[in-house]
Design a protein around this nucleic acid. Structure first.
Lengths: 201, 201
DNA sequence: TATAAATTAGTACAATGTACTAAATTGCAC
DNA sequence: GTGCAATTTAGTACATTGTACTAATTTATA
């Protein structure tokens, strides 16, 4: 394991536990038992750490989506995919608490719009395929609204979870939010699709 | 206008524009043309400023809800009420970017659970009344889900707005998010209720 | 007028992010 | 094994920040 990835891992752990602003670069170095100078050799600025962690998060998301796309459309597998996306976000929750700094680097050093564009494109494709496969039908609820909802949900839930349920464990948080999102799917699931929802409710 | 309220106003403006962490206590004092010592006379810690602003936000929300409750249930008025709630959150957006610090004071010096409890109670009452008055009917979409959705939405939207649309003006942001929430109401609006939704879509 | 509240100006301190240097160690291609 | 580059250490330095404190002055108010 390279020092660089050890740094990323430890920094993320500290960010998750104590928050980004409560974690200084000297704290990270101490936790790794390396010198602060060495840390700044790999990451000149604290922001670079943030960016690297965000890239890691983005990469994780891409992989999860790609894997879903690799097989035939299936509502049950899509819900599992969403669950994996939530877990990935939870694993990187520490950086989402630094909204202030996130906002500062978005558009400059980190292309957030790209994440967002991809997300919506994936969701759109997936929902359309699930419509064709007969798992979903959009009559009462508009497809474009469901895309909006899913995009909104996936962007926000982790922030709300950190604020509202800081004491809950990952597993509890996951069931809570999966249940929430599946309730929305229940609006558009066909009889065929209903079966996939059960295990989440 | 008291110095205390001038401080609150200026601090909030700076927080909204540059973020909480980018705004130092010395900046606030300079913007007000008062001495830093004077500022710390009114607010010993920066956190106290945050708490005072949150109280102001909470108070604003309470007033908006109370005013709605003062008249007969009406879907159109409820949507206007939601719009006012969004505006109040937007006016205090600066502090919501300080998630890290918010999380630190929640449960200790600021009763966030109370805000949340009230919010859900209000929403519950309002929806039940609107069901009785025949504006809403809960068949395909569960009432408890709509409560979850509205609570979730009202907690999160401002954070997502600050991250995703930092360049948009208040008016544009408001129409975007009102449109989003009204789409969900469309699921449960009766024929009578439909009329209220039109102006937001 | 007297007392309290408010305000100013200044100092101090620990912690932080950032930047830099010089020397030592390690890894690796030749 | 030698030599070079990458890595790591240790240390210094600086501006900024939140916080805390003092003494003196001004303002408001009973």
């Amino acid at each position: 394991m390279t020092t660089r990835s050890r740094i990323l891992q430890t920094a993320l752990t500290l960010f998750n536990e104590h928050g980004m602003y409560q974690t200084g670069v000297r704290d990270i170095a101490r936790a790794l038992d390396i010198s602060p100078g060495n840390l700044s050799y790999h990451f000149a600025r604290k922001e670079d750490l943030l960016i690297a962690i965000l890239d890691q998060y983005k990469h994780g998301n891409d992989e999860i989506y790609q894997e879903y796309m690799h097989f035939e459309p299936d509502l049950e597998r899509y819900l599992q995919t969403i669950s994996r996306l939530l877990k990935n976000a939870f694993a990187h929750r520490g950086v989402f608490l630094g909204l202030d700094e996130l906002r500062a680097i978005f558009g400059k050093e980190y292309d957030y719009a790209d994440v967002e564009r991809k997300r919506r494109a994936f969701i759109d494709t997936i929902l359309s395929d699930l419509e064709k496969s007969g798992d979903l039908e959009f009559s009462t609820l508009d497809k474009s609204f469901l895309i909006d909802f899913l995009a909104f949900f996936q962007r926000c839930w982790i922030m709300e979870a950190m604020i509202s349920y800081p004491h809950l464990e990952e597993h509890q948080i996951m069931t809570r939010y999966m249940r929430f999102v599946v309730m929305q799917f229940a609006q558009v699931a066909t009889l065929k699709g209903q079966g996939a929802l059960g295990r989440w409710l």
